[in-house]
Amino acid sequence: MDETGKELVLALYDYQEKSPREVTMKKGDILTLLNSTNKDWWKVEVKITVNGKTYERQGAVPAAYVKKL
């Protein structure tokens, strides 16, 4: 869990989004888990830093590609 009490997951593999509802992640990324009720796809929040600014993006990733921490 992070400092706000939200559950975290670890990306076990790289994943490139294939639709606007998904998010890209790299192996080793730590993501915030938002919903894991679907056994195949979990909704997560990814933090992306671009030019020193951090953005948050929500989307789905394959459940088999992440592990709860």
Rank of each mutant, 00 (worst) to 15 (best):
K68V: 10
V50Q: 09
G59H: 02
V9S: 00
V9H: 01
D14L: 04
L31G: 03
L69S: 02
K53G: 08
M1V: 13
T37V: 08
E7P: 10
N38H: 10
G59L: 08
L33S: 00
L10V: 15
K26Q: 09
P62Y: 05
L8G: 01
V46H: 08
P62S: 02
N51L: 08
T49A: 07
V66N: 01
D14C: 08
A63Y: 03
K6F: 11
Y15M: 02
G28K: 02
N35P: 01
N38S: 09
P62I: 05
D2L: 14
D40A: 08
D14I: 03
E22D: 04
A11F: 03
A64W: 08
T37G: 10
Y15A: 00
K53F: 11
V66T: 01
Q58N: 07
V44I: 05
V44P: 00
S36R: 09
K68S: 06
Y15K: 00
L10K: 07
W42A: 03
D40G: 07
P20C: 12
R21M: 13
D40V: 12
A60V: 15
V23M: 08
T54G: 05
V23P: 01
D2Q: 14
V50A: 08
L8R: 11
L34H: 03
W42C: 05
V46L: 12
E56W: 15
E3F: 14
D29C: 07
I30R: 05
T32S: 08
L8W: 13
K26C: 11
W41E: 02
N51C: 11
L34T: 04
R21A: 14
Y55V: 12
R21G: 15
S36T: 09
K27E: 05
A64E: 10
M1G: 14
T37H: 10
L69E: 02
T54D: 09
S19A: 07
L33F: 04
L8Q: 10
E22Y: 04
M25N: 02
A60H: 15
V66M: 05
L8N: 05
M25H: 01
L31C: 06
E45W: 05
Y15E: 02
V23H: 02
K67N: 04
N51V: 05
L34M: 06
A64T: 11
V9Y: 05
W41A: 00
K47F: 09
T49N: 10
K27D: 02
K18V: 07
L10P: 00
R21E: 15
S19V: 02
K43S: 11
N51R: 08
D2G: 14
K26N: 07
N35S: 12
K39T: 10
A11E: 04
V50I: 14
D29T: 05
T37E: 14
G52N: 08
R57A: 06
K43A: 11
G52F: 05
K68E: 05
D40Q: 10
K27R: 10
K43D: 14
Y55K: 07
E45G: 11
K43Y: 15
N35D: 15
E3W: 12
L33E: 00
K68D: 03
I48V: 13
T32M: 10
R57Y: 07
T24A: 05
A60C: 15
V61N: 01
K53Q: 13
R21T: 14
L33G: 00
K53I: 14
D40L: 12
V46T: 11
N35E: 15
G59T: 02
D14E: 05
E7N: 10
I30Q: 03
A63N: 02
K39G: 10
L33N: 00
T32C: 10
D2I: 13
S19F: 05
Y55L: 10
A60M: 15
N38Y: 07
N51H: 10
D2W: 14
K47A: 09
E7L: 10
E56I: 15
M25V: 10
T32K: 13
L33V: 06
S19N: 11
M25I: 15
G5N: 12
E45C: 14
E7C: 15
L34V: 12
Y13E: 09
K39Q: 10
A63M: 04
E17Y: 04
D40N: 12
N35W: 05
E22T: 06
E22N: 02
K53E: 12
Q58H: 07
V50H: 09
W42R: 00
L12M: 09
L8I: 08
I30A: 01
V50D: 08
V66K: 00
L33A: 01
G28C: 08
T4D: 13
E17K: 13
V50F: 09
V66E: 02
Q16C: 13
L10F: 08
V44R: 00
Y13G: 04
M25D: 00
L33W: 04
T37R: 08
E7W: 12
S19I: 04
L31P: 00
E22F: 05
K67P: 03
K47N: 08
W41S: 00
V23D: 02
V46S: 06
L33T: 00
A11N: 02
K67A: 10
L12E: 02
K53T: 11
R57P: 01
L69M: 09
T24V: 02
T54F: 08
D40P: 01
T49G: 03
D2A: 14
L8S: 07
P20D: 11
L12G: 00
K6T: 11
I30E: 00
K18M: 10
D2N: 14
G28T: 01
L34W: 03
E7R: 11
K67F: 08
A63T: 05
G5Q: 13
G28P: 02
I30S: 01
Y65T: 06
Y65D: 03
T24F: 02
S36Q: 10
Q58V: 14
N38D: 15
W41R: 01
Y65V: 06
Y55I: 13
A11I: 03
V50P: 00
W42S: 01
K27T: 06
K68C: 09
D2C: 15
S36E: 15
K53M: 13
K43N: 11
E22L: 04
Q16S: 10
Y55N: 06
P20S: 12
L33Y: 02
E3M: 13
K27Y: 05
S36G: 10
M1A: 13
D14M: 04
N51G: 12
W41Q: 01
L33Q: 01
W41Y: 07
D40R: 11
L69N: 02
K6C: 14
K68P: 09
G52I: 03
L10E: 10
L31A: 06
S19H: 10
M25L: 08
D29A: 05
N35Q: 10
S36K: 08
K43C: 15
R57H: 07
A63G: 03
Q16M: 12
T49Y: 11
K67H: 09
T37Q: 12
R21K: 13
N38E: 10
G28A: 02
S36Y: 07
D29N: 06
K27V: 06
T4H: 13
I30W: 04
V44S: 00
Y13W: 09
Y13Q: 13
D29K: 00
T24K: 02
T32H: 09
L33I: 03
L69P: 02
T37D: 15
V66W: 03
N38C: 11
K6D: 08
N38L: 07
A60W: 15
Y65A: 10
D29Q: 11
R21Q: 14
L12S: 01
D14A: 06
E22K: 03
G5L: 12
T32W: 10
E7Y: 11
Y15I: 00
G59F: 08
K27M: 07
E45S: 15
